[in-house]
């Protein structure tokens, strides 16, 4: 079943085109790695996909509906970049942050037993029950990202959208984090991941989309490594070799 259908989408900031004629279909259960150089429009495309932006032309359909017109908030789990997009100084605990995953279901009124059970299950699934009462701003980068994954799981999302989730996370935690994503994907959750480390994407993703304003490649990781798409998108082959470790 097609979960995401991007059809000839164009988007510009003022007169600066960022996304140009991109078409892309993603099946339910896929693990899509979105790669491209800095400023290539990856984050913008992710924002178009989850309905944070409206395309200038073309359509983005998620779960069968145009994203900017429909509200599928409870089906989307969004994980932002570690430090820049979230408020580290706010005295909020891990559990309070994970509870937000239920807000798309129960925004006003009392939480039900289902809500509370989903929160406990999510904390447990990513292994942060023991730090649930700590302040989220005091956690390490890896722990904090787990908290955001738990928030997405608490919402029982079908789609996890992650924007460079492991920036500033140490190598060991990063590996464990991607193992967790892999396991969640095997359980049926669709994943769309922006990641600057091509090596990680080709290891974990089931398909790759390579973007630099236009879509240079969309297919399986093996074919991606064999083609010149990356070199074309980055405008030179050096960075490709550098990242293949």
């Amino acid at each position: 079943m097609v979960l995401l259908d991007v059809d000839d989408v164009t988007f510009a900031y003022g007169d600066q085109p960022v996304i140009d004629g991109v078409s892309l279909a993603v099946e339910s259960g896929a693990f899509l790695g979105l790669v491209g150089p800095n400023g290539s429009g990856k984050t913008t495309l992710l924002e178009l996909i989850i309905g944070l932006r409206r395309p200038d032309s073309g359509t983005v359909r998620l779960f069968g509906d145009p994203t900017h017109e429909s509200n599928h908030g409870e089906r989307i789990g969004f994980v932002p970049q570690t430090v820049s997009d979230t408020n580290g100084a706010m005295p909020i605990t891990v559990r309070e942050a994970v509870r937000m995953g239920r807000y798309a279901h129960t925004l006003l009124g009392r939480f039900t037993d289902d809500d509370r059970a989903a929160i406990d299950a999510a904390l447990q699934r990513v292994g942060i029950t023991d730090i649930a009462d700590r302040r989220i701003g005091r956690l390490s980068g890896g722990q904090r990202q787990r908290a955001f994954i738990a928030r997405a799981l608490a919402s029982e999302a079908d789609l996890l959208a992650l924007d460079e989730p492991t920036v500033g996370v140490d190598a060991e935690s990063r590996e464990a984090f991607y193992d967790l994503l892999h396991a969640l994907n095997e359980e049926g959750i669709t994943i769309i991941l922006i990641e600057h480390d091509i090596g990680i994407v080709t290891t974990h993703a089931s398909e790759i989309a390579c973007l630099n304003r236009e879509l240079y490649f969309h297919g399986d990781p093996e074919s991606f490594v064999e083609t010149d798409a990356l070199a074309d998108a980055y405008g030179g082959g050096q960075s490709l070799i550098h990242h293949q470790h």
Partner: peptide, 8 residues
């Protein structure tokens, strides 16, 4: 941004 993505 997370709140917006959650449809709030």
């Amino acid at each position: 941004i997370g709140a917006r993505a959650a449809g709030i």
